[in-house]
Write a protein that binds this DNA or RNA. Structure first.
Lengths: 230, 230
DNA sequence: CGCGAGCTTGACGTTGTTCAACTAGAGTGG
DNA sequence: CCACTCTAGTTGAACAACGTCAAGCTCGCG
């Protein structure tokens, strides 16, 4: 499996997901020997809803969107970066993926067989509890998403999205979005036109400063308020 | 802790959640010795969003609704019966609950300290993987819920709900709902009035037969179609 | 018998989508 | 270098979906 030169290796990889910190050097070596490193271009699909879930994916470099599809409509559930693993939700449950993921920029993805991960879970209880912790963190994000999407109106949903991007994804008030307007609409569960209209409204009302994909928060206070009142 | 007479005991309990099948008799004894059995009346709250998550709850008899609250509005995420455990999503992650649960009828609830469950997870890897499986099954239900709630219109959402109740909760085409009209609305993310109107529409169109809380499916086909087209 | 909670109905207003047209910018081939 | 095309982004108007409000109803219960 090691027939291609890899850019990273698991033992020294500075971007490995948290749960891998629980693994010994020998265990990391096992992962390293059994992974593939794949380069994807912007827009390419990493894994597909309805397909087999044989691998756990890790974004070593780049970023991706995770989404579910229904009748040609998409809902982006989350944005992924190197802190996330894709596919954990199929472990010990089913081997069919319930979501798709696609790259938002050119990315390097590590692919590890679920067998390897399952084996490590069975052999290293610290790793196992860390996986449970990771799963539950994901679920926690779901609760926030589902409240936002079902209980709030467009302005509240968009405020949530902007706060999520700046606080949790980029950790900066001034960001360069990798999402298209349609992606923003798919993330907030509204039509593209509505997303554009409200973004412009926020801009005109000096809540944000928006120039193409450059976004800067001007008033945290108003965004938080909009998020709260829904 | 054993100062009150209990109606059930873990070793012989016919209704224990699946993951407890992985425990030895000694381990089940440990659970049995460290649990409380509490009788709740219909409508009473079992656990509260924002409160501490010190216990894992199991519905030994009865049923409950699990919901999230935001600005006085509720969204019922799922209906619970004896196959479910409440509180697993806080394990190894945080000790604050992200949802509430309330009884839909008079119920017996077992309360087990998360410490006991954590210990068992660390000591019994089959139990641990079974917990992961349970968590992932829950997440899978979330995917369906979030698609239903965000991508479908009222008729599709209500069709989803009816199919869910009959197929997954009661496993019968003819059921006696324990939910009020408002609960149905909270489950499908619509106003009470809309829920009533569309239920009546389904009744008039001979898709279901509805008399108070007695519900019978007449046309699976149309319900499935409505669910599909959204 | 009267009270109150849950249920039901119709009228109306708001929210958000759809549709169609238009614009700007990036890539392509002659 | 200039049409040409293609895609993403933008705008306004019409329309549909859905919630809100207010009123009336029903049924169980004290």
């Amino acid at each position: 499996m090691n027939n291609r030169k890899k850019k990273y290796n698991c033992i020294s990889c500075p971007k490995k997901a948290n749960c891998f910190d629980k693994l010994s050097k020998e265990e990391l070596k096992l992962v390293d020997d059994n992974r593939l490193e794949i380069k994807y271009n912007k827009g390419e699909i990493i894994c597909k809803q309805g397909g087999f879930a044989y691998n756990i994916l890790h974004i070593t470099e780049g970023s991706a969107k995770l989404y579910v599809e229904h009748n040609d409509k998409k809902l982006i559930l989350s944005l992924l970066n190197h802190t996330d693993l894709i596919g954990l939700h199929s472990l010990f449950y089913n081997n069919v993926l319930e979501y798709s993921a696609a790259c938002l920029e050119n990315s390097y993805i590590c692919s590890i067989s679920t067998n390897i991960i399952s084996t490590l879970i069975r052999e290293n209880i610290e790793f196992a509890t860390s996986i449970i912790s990771t799963l539950n963190k994901d679920t926690s994000r779901f609760y926030n998403r589902i409240i936002s999407l079902t209980q709030k109106q467009l302005h509240g949903r968009l405020a949530d999205a902007i706060l999520h991007f700046t606080k949790e994804i980029y950790n900066s008030d001034e960001i360069e979005l990798k999402l298209s307007r349609k992606d923003i609409a798919d993330f907030t569960g509204m039509s593209t036109e509505s997303a554009i209209r409200i973004l412009k409204e926020f801009h005109n009302d000096k809540i944000i400063d928006l120039d193409g994909k450059k976004l800067k928060i001007i008033s945290h206070q108003i965004l938080e308020k909009l998020s709260e009142i829904g």
